[in-house]
Design a binder for these strands. Structure first.
Length: 282
DNA sequence: GTAGTATGCTAAG
DNA sequence: TTAGCCTACTACT
């Protein structure tokens, strides 16, 4: 289950296995049968991630645009692909007879919110609708600041708006605001430029680490389970975090209970003691 | 086995 | 504002 780091990691993992190789493409579930038929027998020529959107390039055939949504998964396997289990929207597999012969790989895509074949201009249009992505070298925080600094909307909501910043999800949102002691309900226009630059820089570092480890860890060395003598976290994202899904538990820094509230249909987590409203001096 | 929850987003109303 | 997508994990029976 994906924030931007998952998608960038997928772009890399797909390229490592399939780049330049002629592939079998199919849609065992049937919902992408027409698209898969067009890809079948062509070679993967490029992979790209922008925010939570994954693009797989197949030369002149176009781009497969994939968005995993809340429960989409992309899983890899080696060897001869087994009978598909569950609703496999798209299966990509190397060909046994390929020359030169290479290791056999396959990948199954299940439960995506979106899986469609796009021409180059349509792919560009998807990208154009997104804000700067902390994981893209060409992205810069200025465009996001232009929107944030004029907005009455809370910084917590702005960070989740993919038109403003692409790739940040509920975990990184909660964690980066905690790490900078910023009240999630503070209006965007009440942030200072220095605060925004600090958030952006930290997102670049945290998400880059997320791509490398394929999980979200946000606690600094002093707050790791080993350093604090506490049990490691066990849940489906597995990373060590300060506030995400820790409602009611003691803040790792000050010990006061972590708060939770619903904001724009998502669960927000924060420490009311460490993240105080501090309007800038003006 | 079953219920409950979820790192996201879109289209329908 | 709400339903839907239809996976995967944990916690409980």
């Amino acid at each position: 289950m994906p924030e931007g780091h998952t998608i960038h990691r997928l772009a890399r993992d797909v390229a490592d296995r399939f780049a330049g190789r002629t592939l079998d493409a199919s849609s065992p579930q049937g919902k992408f049968a027409d698209g898969a038929a067009l890809l079948d027998g062509t070679a993967l020529t490029a992979t790209e991630a922008h925010g939570k959107h994954l693009f797989l390039g197949f030369g002149s055939v176009g781009w497969v645009h994939i968005h995993l949504g809340l429960y989409g998964t992309f899983r890899f396997g080696e060897g001869v692909p087994p009978e598909p289990v569950g609703q496999v929207r798209l299966r990509l597999a190397t060909r046994p007879g390929e020359t030169p012969a290479g290791p056999l790989h396959y990948a199954d895509l299940r439960g995506p919110t979106r899986c469609e074949l796009l021409a180059e201009p349509e792919k560009q249009a998807v990208s154009d609708r997104l804000g700067p992505d902390p994981l893209r070298a060409a992205s810069a925080p200025e465009a996001a600041w232009a929107r944030i600094s004029r907005s009455r909307t809370s910084i917590a909501a702005l960070l989740m708006d993919q038109k403003i910043v692409a790739g940040v999800g509920n975990v990184y949102r909660a964690e980066v605001l905690f790490r900078h002691g910023i009240d999630p309900y503070r209006a965007g226009r009440d942030l200072t430029r220095a605060e925004w630059d600090g958030l952006w820089e930290d997102l670049v570092a945290l998400m880059t680490d997320g791509v490398r480890k394929n999980r979200i860890d946000t606690v600094s060395h002093a707050h790791t389970p080993e350093a604090m003598g506490r049990p490691p976290r066990v849940d489906d994202h597995g990373g060590e975090v300060y506030v995400y899904r820790r409602a009611g538990q003691p803040c790792l820094v000050c010990g006061s209970p972590v708060a939770t509230a619903e904001l724009a249909a998502r669960n927000l987590f924060w420490c009311p003691h460490c993240q105080q409203e501090r309007p800038p001096d003006r």
